[in-house]
Amino acid sequence: MGSDGAEPGSVRPGGRTARVRTAVLRAAGDALAERGFAHLDLADIARRAEVGKTTVYRRWGTATGLVADLLADMAEQSLPRTETGSLLGDLRANARLVQRTLADPRQGALFKAVIAAATCEAKTAEALHHFYDVRVTEWAPCVQQAIDRGEVPEGTDTHEVIRAVSAPLYYRLLTSGGPLDEDAADQAAAAAATAAAAGAYLRGKELG
Rank of each mutant, 00 (worst) to 15 (best):
A23S: 13
D181T: 06
D157G: 05
L79R: 15
L110N: 02
F111I: 05
L110C: 02
A140W: 08
P153I: 08
T175W: 14
A127V: 06
C120D: 13
L40Q: 11
G9M: 05
A122C: 00
A6G: 11
A198N: 11
R58G: 11
A27N: 00
T22C: 03
T101F: 14
Q99H: 06
A193C: 08
V11C: 14
A200V: 06
E50Q: 14
Y170L: 15
T62F: 10
A117Q: 00
V152W: 01
A68V: 02
G150C: 09
A189V: 00
S176P: 04
M1R: 10
V134Y: 05
R163F: 07
A193V: 06
Y171P: 02
T137S: 14
T194M: 03
G14K: 07
T54I: 04
Y170G: 09
Q145D: 14
A164E: 07
D41M: 08
V51C: 11
T158D: 08
T54V: 05
A198H: 09
Y132C: 00
A198M: 05
A125R: 14
R149T: 00
G65S: 01
R12M: 08
C120S: 15
E151F: 00
G29L: 05
Q107F: 14
L180K: 03
Q77K: 12
G208Y: 05
T64E: 15
A27V: 10
D41W: 00
W139E: 07
G199R: 09
L202I: 13
K205H: 14
G150W: 08
V24Q: 08
I147V: 15
G208R: 14
T55R: 08
P8W: 02
F131S: 02
A63N: 01
A125H: 13
D44P: 02
A185E: 00
E76I: 01
R48N: 07
F37A: 11
T82Y: 00
E121S: 14
E206M: 13
A200C: 04
G208Q: 07
E121N: 12
S166F: 06
A185Q: 00
A95Q: 04
L169W: 02
V67D: 03
T124C: 15
A197R: 13
D69I: 04
T101N: 11
V134C: 11
L174Q: 10
G155P: 01
V114K: 01
L66C: 02
F111R: 07
W60H: 12
Y57R: 11
H39C: 09
A28L: 06
E206T: 13
E206I: 12
P168S: 01
A116L: 11
